[in-house]
């Protein structure tokens, strides 16, 4: 009975994290972008530093009417946000926060599981784009699907490099095997993984599929209210998952001073730093064109990832 209770408790904790962390990231993005761009708007709501801006956004989304276009495929249109969001929730289960089983569920092929489930998220974009009965949506859906397919490969390869180094696919196992010199060793892989992850999330500068100045808002053009908020939530959840994964795979997860007791804090700190980088990149770089996007994946990231695999293999053979 205690087993079942423990599982339920773990899942509850994951759910809480899933509900809280993306919102934190969203709030941070508001603030960071506002500071970086010198914007005053988000600084007013709620008084101090505009702390209630996120709450105001939530209220606004909740108030809006839930519109489904007349020609749309209703069921799929309504189902799409859930399909886009759910994989990230599932992935979060497998990400370890601290040592000693501080993880939703230790899965044997955790890394594999994470990547596989994240790949399902693309279905949400496709479904949304197609069901909207809108040519911008369809184009956006196709573009995001194409982008996700392209960047899946470098991401997998970079992850494979880490798995090779650690000799296991289990995420806690990988963190356990970590040593400080892995970070320089796997540096190329880390960059590739992080960049490809950004592209999978369609974050700027890889946001061509949803670029509002190009095709309105891509697959999400027709969405309003809560459903749109779910898509946004999926994006922020994606940031959390990506940063968490990068932390676990490349930055040593809970490793740090007093890691026995404060391991979870290290993980969260590293994740937050990476999330900050994500936001920072958004306000820094201009958007890539669609063909540049594809070329970047196939001609830069994949060769780099292959180089990293070769490097990993050589070093692994040398030190064994």
């Amino acid at each position: 009975m205690s087993d079942a209770l423990e599982v339920i408790l773990r899942l509850l904790a994951v759910l809480v994290a899933f509900l809280v962390l993306p919102l934190v990231v969203g709030q941070t993005e508001h603030k960071v972008m506002a500071h970086m761009q010198g914007r005053l708007g988000p600084m007013y709501a709620g008084g101090f530093h505009g702390w209630a801006q996120l709450v105001a956004d939530g209220v606004k989304f909740a108030q809006k009417e839930d519109v489904v276009p007349a020609d749309a495929d209703r069921k799929i249109f309504q189902l799409a946000p859930a399909v886009a969001l759910l994989p990230y929730l599932l992935v979060l289960i497998a990400i370890p926060i601290g040592p000693g089983g501080l993880v939703g569920q230790d899965i044997d092929a955790g890394l594999f599981f994470v990547l596989a489930v994240m790949g399902v998220g693309v279905l949400g974009s496709l479904m949304a784009g197609w069901a909207s009965a809108n040519k911008f949506s369809l184009l956006g859906g196709l573009r995001s699907a194409a982008q996700l397919m392209s960047y899946e490969l470098p991401m997998l390869l970079a992850a494979a490099s880490v798995a090779m180094a650690a000799g296991t696919l289990s995420l806690p196992g990988i963190v356990d095997a970590y040593a400080w010199w892995w970070t320089p060793w796997q540096l190329i892989g880390a960059v590739v993984f992080f960049t490809a992850g950004l592209a999978e999330l369609q974050r700027p500068p890889f946001d061509m599929p949803v670029a509002d100045s190009e095709i309105i808002f891509g697959a999400y053009t027709e969405y309003t209210g809560m459903r749109f908020a779910l898509f946004l939530l999926a994006e922020y959840a994606g940031i959390v998952v990506l940063c968490g994964l990068t932390t676990v795979l490349f930055l040593g997860g809970w490793h740090g001073p007093w890691s026995d007791s404060l391991g979870w804090l290290w993980t969260l700190l590293k994740t937050a730093a990476l999330a900050f980088v994500v936001i920072w990149l958004r306000v820094t770089y201009p958007r890539l064109r669609e063909d540049q996007l594809q070329r970047f994946a196939w001609t830069v990231l994949i060769p780099l990832a292959l180089t990293q695999i070769a490097l990993t293999g050589v070093v692994k053979v040398v030190i064994s």
């Binding site: 594999f112 790949g119 693309v122 899946e152």
Partner: peptide
Amino acid sequence: FIAWVQVLIYVGSVVVLVLFGLMLTKAPI
């Protein structure tokens, strides 16, 4: 392992390709 491969390849890639094909051949709503 095979289960995750199934998810990765079939659900993540094959079906996406199929949807691609359907949409490029103008599947109607």
